[in-house]
Amino acid sequence: MVRKIVQSLTAVVSNSYITGFLKGTIYQGKLKNVCVPGLNCYSCPGALGSCPIGSLQAVIGSAKYRFSFYVTGLILLFGGFLGRWICGWICPFGLLQELLHKVPGKKIRISGNWKKLSWIRYIMLFVFVIGLPLFVVNIAGYGSPAFCKYVCPAGTIEAALPLILAAPDQFGSLGGLFILKASIAAVVVIASIFIYRPFCTMLCPLGLIYGWMNKISMYQMQVDKDKCIECGKCRVACKLDIEIYKNPTSMECIRCGECKPVCPTNAISSGIKFRTKAEGAASFTEIEGK
């Protein structure tokens, strides 16, 4: 419940430029200099900040620079503190998928070999976000933001739909590209009803980077080895099918914390801690050392 409130507040506050929704325009103030931690299209009419993945492609694809210290630094900074807590608690597109997952219907759990689909995110990051903007450039030396252009359903849902609805005349010339993007967005929306966060687990390049940061981020999930009886209830409660007692730093874990209340021995905790509690028998240290 607390998480839903935080997610909703973040989504509303980071997209609170109401004029944009009414007039079919976007915010053009100074806050756009800064990237938000989550995936939030900067062409959403309400967006107050910049999308880190869109910004990364914009700088990489510019004629002036081939690497963005600014955007990469911000992503590392966010990830270094929080890891994928960002995905679980403050990403607006994650919230949207979770709300869609509440629509009644058969729920499919991604487990076993299906988890290998998460490798698609590497293609998204290294081909669409970095490779194509860097190497496929026009005569002036500019590359296209390929992930935004060909894949990102957040852009279609958060930006295209509100802008088209607010100003249909202005955006009348939609063609094949829009059909491609709308199709991907439709697949993600429908899949979200049946699968928990399909975009996050299979497509999101930002989630991939934050997943790497889960290993070293200041915010950590902690499992007290002395208390854990390995009953597996945490895995059952985890919609992403993670065995947190085996790998508290799993790069798939979005730190939603749904495993904590189901633990019969209260062995799971989370937070920004480097020292173990006295009663925790140095469990965090031992698990890290496994």
């Binding site: 900067y42 910049s50 869109g54 933001p145 852009g155 930006a159 955006f171």
Partner: peptide, 15 residues
Amino acid sequence: DVFNKAIRICLECIG
């Protein structure tokens, strides 16, 4: 570069 991209409607993003 980030700012100039972010304050203009990204035509690619909306298709």
